[in-house]
């Protein structure tokens, strides 16, 4: 079970990243648990300063930008 966290407090790009990540995870057919982190203190604890960010199993894989579903698949594996 992959633990996927999307960091960001409700900006348009954060929602887009969430959608794209879900598409990527489903296409990979992995079991995952997706959580949206909107609390600033918690976002900062990951060392992230630009949102949206993608955290997979506790590791920051993407910060401050959106990438394609293909790119996301690589980051999720």
């Amino acid at each position: 079970m992959k633990k996927i966290q999307i960091l960001g407090s409700g900006c348009a790009k954060c929602n887009q990243l969430t959608e794209l990540t879900e598409v990527a995870a489903k296409e990979l057919g992995i079991l995952y648990n997706l959580e949206k982190v909107t609390d600033y203190a918690k976002i900062v604890s990951f060392g992230v300063m630009s949102t949206p960010a993608l955290v997979v199993d506790g590791r920051v894989r993407l910060s401050g930008k959106l990438v394609s579903v293909e790119e996301l698949k690589k980051l999720l594996q």
Binding site: G8, K13, M49
Partner: peptide
Amino acid sequence: CSAVPLFIGF
């Protein structure tokens, strides 16, 4: 939109 995490980070 990321002014807050950036502020805290700095």
